[in-house]
Design a protein around this nucleic acid. Sequence first.
DNA 1: CTGTTAGCGCATTCAG
DNA 2: CTGAATGCGCTAACAG
Lengths: 330, 330
Amino acid sequence: MNVTSKQIAELCGVTRGTVDRALNNRPGINPETRAKILRVAEELGYRPHFLAQSLVKGHTKTLGIVLFDIHNRIFSQLFHAFEAEARKRGYIVYLVLSNRNKELELEYINNLLDRRVDGIALLPANFNKKFESFLLRSRTPIVTFGNRLAGPFPYIWIDDKQAIRDSVAFLASRGYRHLFYVSPPLRRKGKENIYVPEQRYNGFVEACEAIPDMRFNVIAQKYYLDELNDLIEKTDGKRAILCSSDVYALEVLKWLKSRKIRVPEQIGLMGFDNIDVLNYVNPALTTVDYNVNAIGTGLADLLISRINEEEVPAETLIAHQVVPGESVSP
Amino acid sequence: MNVTSKQIAELCGVTRGTVDRALNNRPGINPETRAKILRVAEELGYRPHFLAQSLVKGHTKTLGIVLFDIHNRIFSQLFHAFEAEARKRGYIVYLVLSNRNKELELEYINNLLDRRVDGIALLPANFNKKFESFLLRSRTPIVTFGNRLAGPFPYIWIDDKQAIRDSVAFLASRGYRHLFYVSPPLRRKGKENIYVPEQRYNGFVEACEAIPDMRFNVIAQKYYLDELNDLIEKTDGKRAILCSSDVYALEVLKWLKSRKIRVPEQIGLMGFDNIDVLNYVNPALTTVDYNVNAIGTGLADLLISRINEEEVPAETLIAHQVVPGESVSP
DNA sequence: CTGTTAGCGCATTCAG
DNA sequence: CTGAATGCGCTAACAG
């Protein structure tokens, strides 16, 4: 059914070598024969067989991106930007979702490698030496984001530590002297790749400790609302809850409302990510904004540069900024 | 660098045919030679070259899915389910975003076809005969969702018309006698594929007309808030706004709040889709819920069945239900 | 300027 | 049970 270059050759009474010269307009061919071949190819709706082409050329013009999932709006937006940039540069992309599952991630990366993607953008769940040497051995360009590896894999994201420091400074400037920091569980250190949560955690502790009269607690467990409840009852003064992501902040806000605790009158609240749904919640959440599209685009750009064997910086950090909302008092 | 079956053959002192018999455990091979070959392959970390394999086998174990974008949570969730099911069945998936752009969609489908995907799940932006015959000529299994084509392409979604009818009935049962229906623009009919918006629109009109004393207006334009404003000022009585999606409803709610119009005391409000962010907005929005995961999974299932040349229903409709919230009065 | 030849890596005949 | 040969569709180097 699909027309091949061989058929075109026969129809034009030439050989496939000549057809190839015409199609990929390479030098050394009579303009007339070229025109004829091109016309016939056009008429027959010829399209080169991509797989065969890839097989011999050694590249597939295909990228893979592995994400945990696509529930957090941050990541769907990032993908959108990544995909748009990739397409502009002639690549098409496989999106695979590891669900934070280390085995699944490995299996997926193998699948992508089997399909000979030209490069992979990776939000790594795995992190040990074995994993990294596996990636290295693949000899495939890999760029990371949102979670870091130790090896020589370019990384693009924001400066998480500084961003949380800025958040603490902001809350301090508004007179808050007791902060509760809600973070994903951290005790799984060594068992999971928690680079970013850890950076944020460190930023929080450092920033708080640098402020003489600042008191603070870290909540990093699954039942964080229970712990938050205890903490709120046991303390007083001007307090604020700082969440490591808007998703947490939204949950906390919902819970506070159900408990009839007013924000910011009784307690301040701050999120992180500035996801678009914040547009629809009251009070408007104070949060940290950064340009996710820039990350997505930059990720594709970095990866394609690496594929073209250009030098790229080991680390590129996107700017962030605190966005004041109504959830902290003036 | 990558080890090939040829190398294994040499190392084992046999020919590639034999290696193939061992690897794909086909009959007609001495158990001992097989064991040896398998061992060597294992040691060398042999992985078959997927492209070469595909080239000769004629399939790629790859699916393509084309979406408008991934901003609406409905679609990211749908993708997640689709991807999970596809993976379970041994397929990996290309996700491409047409941005509702007809030319881009065509280009993308061509890209997918070039890469010889085994099947495509399509949310079509195009819709004319030419487009459909193009799809048919590709001889590639295609399944549609969320927007319909005229031709023989299996379709999976919900019964949009009935769902809106149910919404109207629900509002009527709560005593509302004047409804404003907010829909995407419909005048582009003939220029864009607006199957679903049209179904919903028809359902709305039919349902309203069947209720003797029901008054209603349809707002289907870009500046719908302005029109809504006029309408609200010119009318009175027990009124409600019915939106064709939660995204609209959220915008409307935000606008109502800014205008200090109370929901549901002064006006009722209802959305459609039951997206997860509704969890965080007040008042809780009344909406229509359906199982998106079932659609995503079903989509993959349908597509793979078609690939395996099994018969599938031309249309499969997923159940929906009205979810009462606080945004309509009791 | 064009034809011939040899692969890319694998699957699948047909002989032996 | 195994070897040799052919082809998937395309590219590229070498002759002529």
